[in-house]
Write a protein that binds this DNA or RNA. Sequence first.
DNA 1: AGTTTATTGTGAATATTTTCACAAAAATTT
DNA 2: AAATTTTTGTGAAAATATTCACAATAAACT
Lengths: 216, 216
Amino acid sequence: MISKLSRNSIVRLAQYKNILNKLSSLGLVKVFSDNLADAAGVNSAQVRKDFSQFSIKGNRRGGYDVNELRQQLAQILGKDEVTKVIVVGIGNIGKALVHYKGFEKENIRIVAGFDSSLKSEGKIGNVPIYPIDRIEDFILRNKIRIAVISVPDTSAQEVLNILVKKGIKGILNFAPIRLTTPKSCVIHNVNLGLELETVIFYVNLLKDKKVAIKRI
Amino acid sequence: MISKLSRNSIVRLAQYKNILNKLSSLGLVKVFSDNLADAAGVNSAQVRKDFSQFSIKGNRRGGYDVNELRQQLAQILGKDEVTKVIVVGIGNIGKALVHYKGFEKENIRIVAGFDSSLKSEGKIGNVPIYPIDRIEDFILRNKIRIAVISVPDTSAQEVLNILVKKGIKGILNFAPIRLTTPKSCVIHNVNLGLELETVIFYVNLLKDKKVAIKRI
DNA sequence: AGTTTATTGTGAATATTTTCACAAAAATTT
DNA sequence: AAATTTTTGTGAAAATATTCACAATAAACT
């Protein structure tokens, strides 16, 4: 039984898994904590600590078996079966996500999009896009638990409330606003504006040589 | 002179600024650390500590003047003038960023996009999109210092090397791979797959009730 | 003008995360 | 089969980050 998990350690775990996928496709069968550390940009002790949290064992002097490790991580990350995801708000970001090919190989499938400006069903590639009023029914019928919110910030909270009421348990939110959720629902925010602003800050800092930069 | 700045404190600063923009547009003139803390989802002491790092002063018992604070933050974050940004790789994500309206009000302007599949100049809205071989010249001519990389991961490092050689100092990277840069260049990574996987992990965790979740 | 009240600013205390460092163990060499 | 090498696994130490808690102080009230 695990007691405390930091978000960062989970992100790292997922990173390791993605690195392992690449190593595996290159035909590697064995990997050391040191290799993973380099690829992930962390310390090797960090890698081993992360693994030890989940009782993942390697072989002293032999490192880790790539495929075995990959499978263990996939299991921990709940990716041994396909996860269905819906995207709410088919603006620029929403469209990009629906198009994005990278999810397939992570066992994530975007099964539908929803948008309030739509009056009738459309399609992006193979993904059906529905008017927003179809969403409640869709979630229930298809037992959806994960949603992406990419609506304007003014309607984000309202959308979230509906989602939660219908049983959504996890949300990736692109609306640049802090949303409130019950404890039963996990939310993670991505704010592209903030990301870019942060980069700009550091560039200005370097330019002015005001400061010692730490750990980007 | 500031000696150590964590990335997180910068992200928070940018968050505060965005919150202040909203408060200001609602007509508020005064704000307490407690209000900002609520909106940003942190402790009020955290807000005050962040400010004190940059010698931002409020009034005891009076809180902070919204517009003054906003201006101070904008100055710290280097947003008192327009920052020009280019987007390299006009796939799904790249297109979304070029379309994205949110940057304008942060004084960020996307001035061009570049893509290797293009043979001649195109346009997305007002933003010109050029074949990739025009990029070096463009950077030099327009003194660009910030770039977004949204090319496939296989060409990301190659693109980055070119950018750095031509003087790019800050990069927001969407390619799901760790890129190596000289110290003179700041890089920040956004990996949408990882973000979604992390949410899925926590949802599975909640479902199985394996664990106490901390600080999402 | 004095008293009360609310909020900042910040050292000190706590909590968390990362790194070090080394014994334990497995593979390889001699 | 003993000695050497290499890498894991993990307590302990160090570094960071967050929160507490309270004196200082300014506004509001009496």
